[in-house]
């Protein structure tokens, strides 16, 4: 039975090994569900499909609670390390307006590099301590960097010069469709199969555009948090084993989801319930 399951997963992934094909099918599904939406509308998550939620969001946006995080992030970002170097020395274009290009496949390291991981690698390279990944300083720096990237279109590449890139993408995809946890859910059951429906009083957003609005100020958190913190929250809801933020699993998952969202504008930092 277990073997059968693996065969099925193997053939399904093999049959649609082409990420472009995946992307097409993924979008066609949402087009059928929400025929009025244009691609860029998906940057707004649940607000793209729920008029009431959208209205209260627009009121909060008049005095956005993430503004302080952007300011703090800019300050941290420009503060020199003990050796006099800066984050900007580690990043393309000095870190400005690059959020839409992450995560990136890094051939020399043989893994997916998210912007959060790039920041921590920069710290370590310069003899500084890495930052915790879910909230606080790193979320603030990412908020500032996302702010400088607003309206840039997500543009994720899976280079065919390195077969390991495609493999990482496929692992992310498999993780997304795999059932897990005591409640036996996959990400897709909630955010593909049942997007737009209600689970109790909570309406489910489409996964298309899920990586555009980060980091996000969640009213529930009362602060700004990272995408991987949200991933972990969804694991908790289904009583699944909690993965580490920035683990291979979650970086590959982010790679897959971001690729699905190519062409959608970055509008982080943002606000969610």
């Amino acid at each position: 039975m277990r073997l059968l399951k693996w065969f099925v997963i193997f053939f399904v992934t093999a049959a649609f090994a082409n990420p472009e094909q995946d992307q097409l099918l993924f979008r066609q599904h949402y087009q059928k569900l929400f025929p009025k939406l244009k691609l860029q509308d998906y940057a707004d998550g649940i607000y793209a499909i729920d008029a009431d939620a959208r209205e209260s969001w627009q009121i909060i946006e008049e005095f956005p609670p993430y503004e302080l995080a952007i300011e703090a992030g800019e300050k941290w970002f420009n503060e020199p390390f003990a050796n006099g170097k800066h984050y900007s020395d580690c990043l393309p274009n000095k870190g400005i307006a690059i959020s839409h290009l992450y995560p990136k496949w890094d051939e020399s390291q043989g893994k997916v590099i998210t912007l959060a991981l790039a920041l921590n690698q920069c710290l370590e390279k310069n003899g500084e301590k890495p930052l915790p990944y879910q909230k606080g300083k790193i979320a603030e720096i990412l908020a500032y960097l996302a702010y400088t990237s607003r309206d840039k279109l997500i543009n994720i590449k899976i280079p065919d010069t390195d077969p390991r890139a495609l493999k990482a993408y496929q692992q992310g995809k498999q993780y997304y469709y795999q059932r897990r946890g005591q409640l036996n859910f996959s990400c897709a059951i909630c955010h593909v199969q049942n997007a737009g429906k209600f689970i109790r009083s909570e309406r489910l957003s489409p996964s298309l555009g899920h990586t555009s609005n980060w980091p996000t100020y969640r009213l529930k958190w009362g602060e700004i948090g990272t995408l991987h913190r949200r991933f972990i929250g969804c694991h908790r809801q289904i009583r699944a084993k909690i993965p580490e933020p920035q683990s291979d699993e979650l970086r590959n998952l982010e790679y897959f989801l971001s690729y699905m969202g190519n062409g959608i504008p970055i509008n982080g930092p943002s606000i969610r319930k």
């Binding site: 049942n194 429906k197 209600f198 109790r200």
Partner: peptide, 22 residues
Amino acid sequence: TRSKGNCLACHVIEDGESPGNF
């Protein structure tokens, strides 16, 4: 009850409050 069956998460049942619609 949410921590038990939580059937209301997905089904309308009698007078149950804020049911889902899976």
